[in-house]
Amino acid sequence: MVAEGRGPATSATPQLEVAGDFFNPEVPLDALPGVETVDWAPLHPRFARRLQVGAAIRAVVYVAAAGAFQMAVSPRNRAAIAESLPWLPALLWTALGVFCVCSIVWPLIAVPRRGYVVREKDLLYKSGVLWRSVKAFPFNRVQHTKLNSTPLDRRFGLASLSVFPAGGGLGNHVRGLGRETAERLRVYISERIESGALAADSDERSGAAGNAGR
């Protein structure tokens, strides 16, 4: 699960056409590990099912609410609607039905396209069916991590891991990990954060001491 070390350099990483001295002399861009070649770890196999169950529960609630609303419409208004807009109830019910079916089917399409990679120095998360995105969270910028699991998640043995870099931003979480995987990841990331902070601290201290001595 945890891919130790950064992936090998690939010839697929393209050159940037840049004016000026973009390239750091020590690390040519070719040698930078690219994201294209990493092995994306899929989410937990039960995650799609869990999302579907959630969507189904929500669908039941929506349908119940819609039914209750229809009951609540007074007979007089109902008659008026039947007279002037006879197609309206059918249209609304169809729309609701299509929405519910889509939301139940959608996880089957979306979940296989999500994935994550834990590298030595960062966490990558890709998602999206139409609008695809790859997010990268360097560990030495993560402030803290959090493990979340809703009752439904727990039923399926799942958890979601949130990472909090400074500056916030939404959607910094990986949903649908196995509970043990999530816990292992959390511990791993916390260790990386701590070791990074210690290194920075000691660097800073020695640097400050050196300056004071001078």
Binding site: V134, A136, P138
Partner: peptide, 19 residues
């Protein structure tokens, strides 16, 4: 993508405090 990889490299190899 190359910029993203380069930014990640700069961030991850940086040992200075960012604030």
């Amino acid at each position: 993508c190359a910029l993203r990889d380069y930014i990640l490299y700069r961030v991850e190899s940086s040992r200075r405090r960012w604030h």
